[in-house]
Simulated assay, not measured.
Amino acid sequence: MSSQYTRRETRDDGQSAHNVLEISNASVAFAMERGDARVLDDVSINVRRGEVLGVVGESGSGKSMLADSMLDAIDSPGTLTGDVTFHPPEGGDPIAVNQLSKEELRQFRWERVSMVVQGALDSFNPTLSIGEHFVETLRAHDYDVAEGMERARQLISDVHLEPDRILDAYPYELSGGMTQRALIALSLLLDPDVLVMDEPTAALDLLMQQSILKLLSELKDEYDLTIVIVTHDLSHVARISDRLAVMYAFEILELGPVGDIVANPSHPYTRELLNSIPDIDADLDEMASIEGTSPDPLNVPRGCSYHTRCPLADEQCRETNPDLFEVSGDHSAACFYTDEARETIPLKKEVTK
């Protein structure tokens, strides 16, 4: 294969052990008649090279906005402020992602950071075969088509599909799981460093969800990937993640190693989220949900965004929004009462990695 597909050499200046993406003070707002709706609120997080970062939270928590921000892919009329920086693994100057031109972004989004969005079937043009999607992508980025299709066949095999059948098929001829696998193969066609996945197992049955997550773990090792997985399903993503970021009301409330967070969560919301995971072995009266609703993006409460649903909230919580405090080592939580949360909200089940 040509240098287009040669595995990039990792730089040896210390950066390779650290961050591939740095998001600093990122906010996303949409102008509406009732005012500006902020759907990402001053979020800062680093994505470490070679990790699987799980981003979890209820629907409407800002997870997808954070994912879109990593590629500066916010749909109009939304606006992104803050800084998104990409560090090339082969060295060279950092890339200020949200300062790239339209053409530079088009190249960046496939060659550096690739994204698999929700609804695999909707991501394909129904009038084109799967193979034609691969060809169009290669041509759009000025890659050699013949050589690129050799890679496409290998990628399709790597996601446990038959290249001859899949490349000639149209999207509607494939099952949901097959379509998702084909989309993952397409996202890896130009050898990106980072794969961002927005609800990769949505609308799939339980067995297929587990199969897709196992596949992602295999691909991470095979293609030296950094993976960001955005999902509402904490129990599934915990099995393959290295770290978890728990989001609520458009900000991160807890961040740390997956083992620490699932075994000893420090934020009341994370503990309630873990307790709300369905358990087929539990009695109906033991099934828990988080009381209350997430805030309207046009009316996020003052102070801690979770205080309207939190059993520990007091005047300090209603007036002051806490920063992420270090709980222990690499584990942090945006809560004034992490010790009290463990005592007040016991975990009802164990989630294993």
Results as ranks from 00 to 15, higher is better:
281 D>Y: 07
232 H>W: 05
249 A>Q: 13
266 S>A: 15
248 Y>N: 12
261 I>L: 08
233 D>T: 09
252 I>S: 08
267 H>Q: 13
249 A>R: 06
219 L>R: 06
244 L>S: 04
289 S>E: 13
264 N>F: 00
282 A>Q: 11
228 V>D: 03
276 S>Q: 11
227 I>Y: 01
289 S>I: 15
302 R>I: 13
265 P>Q: 03
264 N>A: 12
261 I>R: 00
238 A>F: 07
238 A>H: 02
230 V>R: 01
218 E>L: 05
252 I>V: 15
268 P>Q: 05
258 V>C: 05
299 N>D: 15
220 K>F: 07
238 A>W: 02
265 P>D: 05
283 D>R: 07
253 L>S: 00
279 D>S: 14
291 E>V: 09
293 T>A: 15
253 L>A: 02
237 V>M: 11
304 C>Q: 13
264 N>Q: 08
296 D>K: 02
221 D>M: 10
252 I>D: 04
247 M>D: 10
295 P>S: 11
291 E>R: 02
262 V>W: 00
252 I>P: 03
270 T>H: 01
277 I>R: 04
219 L>F: 08
278 P>W: 06
263 A>V: 00
264 N>L: 02
303 G>R: 00
237 V>N: 05
245 A>M: 03
303 G>K: 00
262 V>Q: 01
285 D>H: 02
258 V>D: 02
264 N>T: 13
282 A>N: 01
230 V>C: 04
287 M>K: 12
287 M>C: 04
294 S>G: 13
236 H>M: 14
275 N>M: 07
254 E>R: 04
279 D>C: 01
271 R>H: 10
251 E>S: 09
302 R>A: 15
244 L>V: 07
220 K>S: 11
288 A>K: 14
221 D>Q: 14
283 D>P: 00
234 L>Y: 01
302 R>C: 05
240 I>A: 06
259 G>Y: 01
291 E>K: 04
246 V>P: 03
238 A>Y: 01
281 D>E: 14
286 E>M: 10
263 A>R: 08
241 S>G: 05
302 R>F: 02
284 L>C: 02
231 T>I: 11
279 D>N: 11
245 A>D: 05
267 H>T: 12
228 V>P: 04
250 F>G: 15
261 I>M: 03
226 T>D: 13
218 E>F: 00
221 D>S: 13
255 L>T: 06
257 P>W: 00
253 L>H: 06
221 D>Y: 00
254 E>N: 06
219 L>Y: 08
216 L>Y: 02
217 S>E: 09
280 I>M: 13
265 P>M: 04
239 R>I: 12
257 P>G: 05
271 R>A: 11
269 Y>L: 10
284 L>Q: 12
255 L>V: 12
228 V>N: 03
232 H>L: 10
304 C>N: 08
227 I>S: 03
269 Y>G: 11
260 D>N: 10
280 I>G: 02
264 N>G: 09
220 K>M: 07
247 M>C: 12
220 K>Q: 14
223 Y>A: 13
216 L>T: 08
